[in-house]
């Protein structure tokens, strides 16, 4: 192989690697929950205007809904919601009694896949805190304050694309070397 061939081969290798590095990025994953109000696992002392979920990308306006469930699993509030960009919200129900709640969502990602998940919080408005603790609701204490968001699997392996790019580059180097030898 002459140094010119090698140089040319290396240039092609660099270009093909770059092409792959740009094209093989792991693209769209499902929408992921970024934040919520109330925060998962928090104690709410002052009722907010709404329960809201914010995702990492815009949602499709397609049968998105939010449900509020009591600790005993009964549904307290449920509504189809219209996303505003990345956010969906459910108005805070008037006269919501103190207690432990789950707010569950079902939204449709930009890629068309439904995503479900939930957060848990305790509602303890000032003045009734004592009654929460004393309430005849033994299940309240066993509510797992855990994020039940759908586990999002890790993206693909970008090194695979890079590796294939390098491989193609190498094949090209060999091809060019062979061509030169044939001409010589």
């Amino acid at each position: 192989m002459s140094s010119r061939t090698i140089k040319r081969g290396l240039a092609i290798l660099a270009i093909s690697t770059t092409v792959w590095a740009f094209s093989a990025t792991s693209a769209s994953a499902h929408s992921k929950l970024e934040s919520s109000n109330p925060v998962d696992g928090s104690v709410v002392t002052e009722a907010p205007a709404s329960i809201s979920f914010t995702f990492d990308e815009d949602l499709l306006a397609d049968a998105d809904s939010i449900s509020l469930n009591a600790a005993d699993g009964t549904n307290v509030a449920n509504a189809k919601v219209q996303p505003a960009g990345k956010t969906v919200e459910l108005p805070w129900p008037a006269d919501l009694p103190a207690g432990n709640y789950q707010a569950a969502y079902r939204v449709v990602s930009a890629d068309g896949h439904p995503v479900t998940g939930a957060i848990s919080f305790a509602y303890a408005p000032a003045g009734v805190t004592a009654s929460v603790a004393a309430s005849a609701q033994p299940s309240a204490s066993v509510i797992a304050i855990s994020n039940t968001t759908e586990p999002e699997s890790t993206g693909g392996n970008p090194w695979l694309g890079l590796g294939i790019g390098v491989l193609i580059g190498l094949v090209l180097v060999v091809l060019f070397a062979a061509m030169r030898r044939k001409r010589a």
């Binding site: 049968a63 809904s65 449920n78 569950a104």
Partner: peptide
């Protein structure tokens, strides 16, 4: 177990 239960009105509860 993680059960996502959706009723006819679309209300969902996720219980574990």
């Amino acid at each position: 177990m993680k059960a996502t239960l959706i009723n006819a009105k679309g209300a969902l509860v996720i219980t574990s």
